[in-house]
Amino acid sequence: MTWDRLRSRQPVVAKLLQQAVVRERLPHAYVFEGEDRLEHREAASLLCRAFLCRSTETKPCGVCHDCKRAENGSHPDLTTIQPDGLSIKKNQVELLQKEFAYKGMESPRKVYVIEDADLMTASAANSLLTFLEEPEGETLAILMTRNLHFLLPTIVSRSQILSFSPLSDVERQKNLEAAGEKPVLAALRARIGDKPVDLPEEERTAWIVHGRQVVIQLAEEVLQRPQQARLILQEKWHSHFKDRNHIDTGLDLFLFWYRDVLYMKWEREDLAYPDQAERLRVESLHRSETMLASNMKAVMEAKKYLSANVNPQLIMERLLLRIQEGS
């Protein structure tokens, strides 16, 4: 990530950050808020490098020892906190405070990044508040959130808020591919974001790959062999999509399948399943736009029932029945 690249995607954010770096007037804390976590991470990486860079000219210079180590995440004065399971706990913030009580190993400056800051427990948020109110030395905090209203108002009031503009699915897909994601997986991840949020990155990728195949197979059975669909549901769907969080993501994958079928009718190319174009085309010949709209509505209602704590197995059986009746 460079200033030019950030400016092309988030012009307001880039202008404010670069001006603060050039004038050496960075606040003690930023809150990056918006839907796209990748945008947050790349902007945070750029700002961390600029903050730690020792160049007297362009910051970040991109060639000094500090820039390189900050970019690959190995700088000793850069700390990143992520949720431990479903939340960020008080002991994680306390460990951060203990670490920052010592002088910087490489320079007087230290920076910490908190991802999904809205997932802090109440005790963790209160501990961080004390830290924000009494920063020691040259310290920079970057908090990322997709739910600004879930942060303590006192934390928000002590930070500078930068709102990131939402990107289109196609823009997110291009960014993921530029970051090294395979095109087929980038297409789907651009649309579902970081779901399921309870899995670490390396596990999430494998989970999505498997879940994607289950959805493709289930959709094909519903169309071609509806009497076998329930068997796939029992043997593969329920064994992979186990809890409500995962089932909700699975329903998203299912929803995007039927949206892609509709897109094939409209001859659109921005697909969530670009490698399945032939299967999507075949299904588009068997389903009318009205049927597909009904299918998507059924999936959305299944998500609503899921959030209302209705039995997941009953939800899925009812969903398959509705889709089959509509076909």
Rank of each mutant, 00 (worst) to 15 (best):
F164Y: 11
E133V: 05
E94N: 13
M120H: 07
E171N: 06
F131S: 06
V170I: 01
E171S: 13
L176F: 13
V93H: 09
L167T: 07
I88T: 03
Y102N: 14
L152E: 02
D118G: 03
G137L: 08
G137H: 10
E136T: 14
A124C: 15
K103A: 13
F150Y: 09
R146G: 07
G137N: 12
T121Q: 06
E177M: 14
G104H: 03
H149C: 03
P108I: 04
P153F: 02
I142Q: 01
G137W: 05
S165K: 14
I142Y: 02
I142W: 02
Y112A: 09
T130D: 11
F150G: 00
E134I: 03
S157G: 01
L143P: 02
S163H: 14
L129C: 08
N175P: 01
Y102S: 13
A122H: 13
L132Y: 02
N126P: 12
Q92W: 12
I161W: 08
I155F: 07
M105D: 09
S123Q: 15
L176I: 02
E136M: 12
V111K: 07
Q97R: 14
V170R: 04
A117Y: 03
R109L: 05
P166N: 14
K110D: 05
K89T: 10
L148K: 10
S159P: 12
I114E: 02
N175Q: 13
T139R: 15
M105T: 13
G137F: 08
A101C: 10
L86H: 14
L151G: 07
V156H: 05
D116C: 06
S165D: 13
Q92A: 15
L132G: 01
E133W: 05
L143F: 07
E136I: 15
L143V: 06
I114N: 01
